[in-house]
């Protein structure tokens, strides 16, 4: 029946197993590919994976982790990535200072989150469906703003050192994007585990009635999470577009699946069964290295996509099999 009723001895051993599930899976992926592909476990390749695939995915997945922790799924993270990038590039192209452009980009993310918050907290629409609607509207907004979905390139004259710094800068030899991942994951990790607000978010996500009866402003918490999620995702959009000096329409959609996968893989394969930052990061790394490894051993892009889908389904099965169905 329920997990609470499982005999202590059994639940502990199962818990221990799950605690090591994700690191073990990552180790397995690393071991298999380093055996199959000679170039896999080199400094250059690992750094490449971390910078090119893991960093931005991790930022978006962290946004998703917040949403999952509060009991929802944010399908509009990709939209926030796109709108953030669009606003940023549009401002840069118009000759605005980069700092102001970053501000505009973040504003676009906040706006996306605010729109979700309105639907979720004011109208009481479930987060999944609300963010689905936002996904539609965001898609159309991009088309409207770009004459039907044309990329926007920053004119050569406008590529300033500040822009290059955001896109390609590094500190102590570590790229800016990875620093940001470090900063955000520390922040969100501490928020979820150590702070009052973190407890409140988890309480709302896992047992909303008890949260309400304990005096929490449930709707306000959901609204705040939506806004935070949109803002963080927009940050990824700014980094992405600064990196390529362009805004590419719908580029953010690619992050949606991976972020859902990473957040849920991290949730499922954890001892506690709740959304957590280390789990999400391990999940992102797992996806990144698996895709890279498959590429190196010669699988094409389409098989990678299938592999990711299978991995997600396997994770879900692992996470829910044997558990009593809730609600």
């Amino acid at each position: 029946m329920s997990r609470a009723q499982a005999r202590p001895s059994r639940s502990i051993s199962a818990a221990e197993l799950l605690r090591f599930g994700l690191p073990a899976m990552l180790a397995l992926v690393l071991a298999v590919f380093s055996a199959l592909a000679p170039g896999f476990l080199t400094v250059a390749n690992v750094t490449g994976v971390l910078v090119n695939s893991v960093a931005l995915n991790a930022i978006v997945a962290l946004a998703m982790t917040l949403a999952v922790a509060s009991g929802g799924t944010d399908l509009s993270v990709g939209t926030a990535v796109d709108l953030g990038g669009l606003a940023f590039i549009a401002a840069v192209s118009a000759g605005q200072p980069v700092a102001l452009a970053v501000f505009f980009g973040l504003l676009a993310g906040i706006g996306t989150g605010l729109f979700n918050a309105l639907l979720i907290a004011r109208l009481g629409v479930t987060p999944f469906l609300a963010t689905l609607g936002t996904l539609f509207i965001g898609h159309s907004l991009q088309q409207l703003a770009t004459d039907g979905g044309n990329p926007v390139y920053v004119p050569a004259g406008r590529i300033t050192p500040a822009l290059a710094l955001i896109g390609h800068g590094s500190c102590l030899g570590i790229p800016l994007s990875l620093w940001l991942v470090l900063l955000l994951s520390t922040g969100i990790g501490l928020l979820l585990t150590r702070t009052r607000f973190g407890r409140e978010v988890l309480a709302v996500g896992i047992q909303a009635p008890a949260a309400l009866y304990s005096g929490l402003p449930v709707r306000r918490i959901l609204a705040l999470i939506s806004i935070a999620s949109g803002t963080i995702a927009a940050l990824a959009g700014i980094l992405l577009s600064a990196h390529v000096n362009a805004y590419v329409p719908y580029a953010g959609n690619a992050y949606l699946l991976d972020s859902i996968g990473a957040a849920f893989i991290g949730t499922a394969l954890s001892r506690t069964g709740r959304a957590n930052v280390p789990g999400t990061l391990l999940g992102v790394a797992l996806f990144g290295f698996m895709t890279n490894g498959l590429l190196l051993i010669g699988w094409n892009f389409y098989w990678q996509q299938v592999g990711t889908g299978v991995l997600i389904l396997l994770t879900l099965i692992l996470a829910f099999a044997g558990r009593e169905r809730v609600g």
Binding site: L119, L123, V125, L129, A130, L132, G133, T134, L135, F136, I137, H139, S140, L141, Q143, L144, G148, G149
Partner: peptide, 15 residues
């Protein structure tokens, strides 16, 4: 490209 906007608006209206 107004299509998606219209669809999104109708969906949200229905919700």
């Amino acid at each position: 490209y107004l299509q998606d906007l219209v669809k999104g608006a109708v969906l949200i209206g229905a919700l």
